[in-house]
Amino acid sequence: MRQYEQATNAHEIDRVVPLIAEDAVYWFSDGSYRGVAEITGAIERTSATIRDEAYGIGDLEWVVLTADHAVCRYRFSWTGIVDGRPRSGAGRGTNVVVKRDGTWKMRHEHLST
């Protein structure tokens, strides 16, 4: 999750894509996205809307942790510039992570505010 948080804060989609499973499904407040293309499109739209975003994950709890699967829940927060004005937000997240070819990848993400 820390690697995912750091990749998100780098604002370089090429750092985030390798961390997402091909068959991933993400649920965001603005809709549901299936597969890497839809998910990266949603992430890129958010990046274009929120300039200089700083995204943080806190209160991380691993509720399932096996050799090939993990589930966590956490609180997230963000700050940035929207329409030229400072903005911020926060919410809750749940992620399902799977190990594929020796690498942990996001299989599902659910963010809610």
Rank of each mutant, 00 (worst) to 15 (best):
Y4V: 07
T40K: 14
V64I: 11
V25P: 04
L65I: 05
G80S: 01
I43S: 05
Y33Q: 12
E22T: 03
W27F: 11
V36A: 10
R73K: 06
I39V: 11
T113F: 13
T46A: 12
H11W: 14
T49A: 08
T49S: 09
S112N: 10
L111F: 13
E22F: 01
E12G: 01
E44Q: 15
A10I: 03
Q6V: 03
E38A: 13
A90D: 01
A7N: 07
E38D: 15
Q3F: 10
D101P: 00
E61M: 04
A54D: 15
V63G: 04
T66I: 05
W104T: 05
L65W: 14
A21H: 15
R85C: 04
A7T: 01
V16H: 15
A37L: 05
G31M: 04
D14F: 07
A54T: 10
I81F: 02
S88H: 15
G89P: 10
A67E: 14
S47Y: 15
Y74L: 04
A37K: 11
D30M: 05
D59G: 12
I57G: 03
E22H: 12
V36W: 08
D30T: 06
V82P: 00
T46S: 14
G102M: 07
Y74I: 03
D83K: 13
L60R: 12
V16F: 14
E53C: 02
E61T: 06
C72I: 01
R51Y: 00
H11F: 06
E38N: 05
E61S: 08
G56W: 04
W78T: 01
P86A: 00
